Amino acid sequence: MEDFDLAQLAQYLHITPDKVEKMALRGTIPGRKVSGQWRFNEADIHHWLEDRIGATESEDLGQMQKVVDRVTGRQTDQQPIHQLCTVDTIEIPLSARTRGSVIRNMCEVATRSGLMWDAPAMAEAVKARENMHPTALDCGVALLHPRRPQTSILSDTVVALGVTHSPIPFSDTGHSTDIFFLICSYDDSVHLRTLSTLSRLIASDNLLTQLRAAGSAAEAWECMHAAEEALETV
């Protein structure tokens, strides 16, 4: 990936160069100076956006969605979550009691789609991402994903969902996790849009309660579908 200069990043984020420079000076956006000029690595900016999506409060997620739409380009043919995450890629209950077994089992579930075919390779990539920065949220949900799209083992984007019987320690924050999404995106733009939509879904009323009460993959999928349809009307 290439670096952005100040003007290029401002155009990419649809904000002014002055605002980008102020953010860089404050350390709120990753950048470095080379020969007195600001440079911003595209991968670092992608991960900065990714972290902002995960840290955004529920009432601000709609605004964050607008940022993602501007950055990635609004895609009218973007597949909804209920098409990326099918009954085949949902496991209820997910049989796992440790962080490592969650990651391995979720990757195995994703292979049922036929769109991802090397579960061990994906598991290693997800584990490396988790070691860098855990994706578990305080609400008991983890949004698992590799640091970079694993295009060598994917033919298209797939999302898997698993719900454990009991919450397990999954991050270093002290919170336990029992709902796990695995996002295996084919490119960065799709990843950001999928992550943003999932973040809005899990912040919506009752969905997490419904997923925890779901007795089957089909029931969980119906809950996801209904929540996504409700989100589209907002």
Rank of each mutant, 00 (worst) to 15 (best):
T157Q: 01
L94G: 04
V159W: 13
W117E: 02
E57K: 12
L144G: 04
C85T: 09
P167I: 13
I45E: 13
V163H: 09
T164H: 06
K66E: 10
R104G: 00
Q78I: 03
V71F: 04
Q83D: 12
L84T: 07
V71M: 05
A142G: 07
V87W: 02
Q83T: 10
A136S: 15
N105Y: 04
V158T: 06
F170C: 09
R104P: 01
D69G: 00
V141T: 08
A123Q: 14
I92W: 07
P146C: 04
M106K: 13
T98R: 14
P120D: 10
V67F: 00
V102L: 05
Q78K: 11
A125L: 08
A43L: 09
R52H: 10
G162V: 03
G62I: 02
P169G: 00
F40D: 04
I90C: 08
I153R: 15
L94R: 08
P134K: 13
D51Q: 15
A96Y: 10
E91S: 14
R147M: 12
R52L: 10
C85W: 02
T135Y: 07
A96W: 11
R147N: 06
A55D: 11
T86A: 01
E108W: 07
C85D: 03
D60I: 01
A43Y: 13
S152E: 15
V87R: 02
A43H: 14
R70N: 10
R52T: 06
L144W: 11
P167E: 15
I103R: 14
H47L: 13
I53P: 05
A160W: 08
